[in-house]
Amino acid sequence: MLTLFYIFAAISIICAFGVLFMRNPIHCALMLVGTFFCLGGIYVMLNAEFVAVIQVLVYAGAIMVLFLFVLMLLSTNEPSQVAVKWDAAKMLAVIITGGIFIQVASIFSDSALTLGEKGNYPLEKIEEIGSITLIGQLLFTEYVLPFEIISILLLVAVIGAVVIAKRRFN
C-alpha cells in the first residue's frame, strides 16, 4: 500500500516539475494531467472514491481540455523561447519558495504535531454506508446552502466567461 503511494507520489512530483520546466505549454498541460491522475490514485487509497472520480473527470478531463483548447486556439509559435529565464529575482524566488517548503515540511514532520477532535465518520462507517451515499446525504442536508450557492456561482462564471470572451462589435 505504502509502496503504491510512493510510486504515485514520485510520478506526481516528476510531472509537477515537468509543468515547471517543459518548454512547450502543451507538454506542460499533459504533465499536469499526469499529476492529476496520480492524485486521483492517492485519493482512492484514502477511501475517497467519489473525489477521485470527479478529479479525473472534471480536472483531468474537462478543465485540462479547456486549457488545451485555449492553448491551441492561441497557438503562439515561439519555439526559441526558453521556459525559465534566470535572473536575480528568479533565484530569489527559488530561495524563498524553498524556505517556505522547508518551514512547512518541518512543521508537518514534527512528531509533536497535534490533531483536533475526531469526527463522526470512521472508516468502518464509511464502508458500511458507502462513500458516495454519504457525500450525497451530506450535500443535501448539512451543506445544502453552500451547494445551492455554488450552483449560482457556476451560472455566474458561465455568463461571465461568455461576456468576457466574446468579440465586441462596434
Binding site: 475517497a48 473525489v51 480536472y59 475526531k118 465518520y121 451543506y143 453552500p146 456561482l153 455566474v156
Partner: peptide, 27 residues
C-alpha cells in the same frame, strides 16, 4: 485521519470553484 467527511465535501466545492475560475480566467 480525523474521521471526518467535511474535508471531502469541501474538495467537491473547491473543484467547482476551480472549474469556474478556470473558465473565467481562460476567457
Amino acid at each position: 485521519s480525523l474521521d471526518s467527511m467535511t474535508g471531502v465535501v469541501f474538495i467537491f466545492f473547491i473543484i467547482v470553484v476551480a472549474a469556474a475560475e478556470a473558465v473565467v480566467g481562460l476567457s
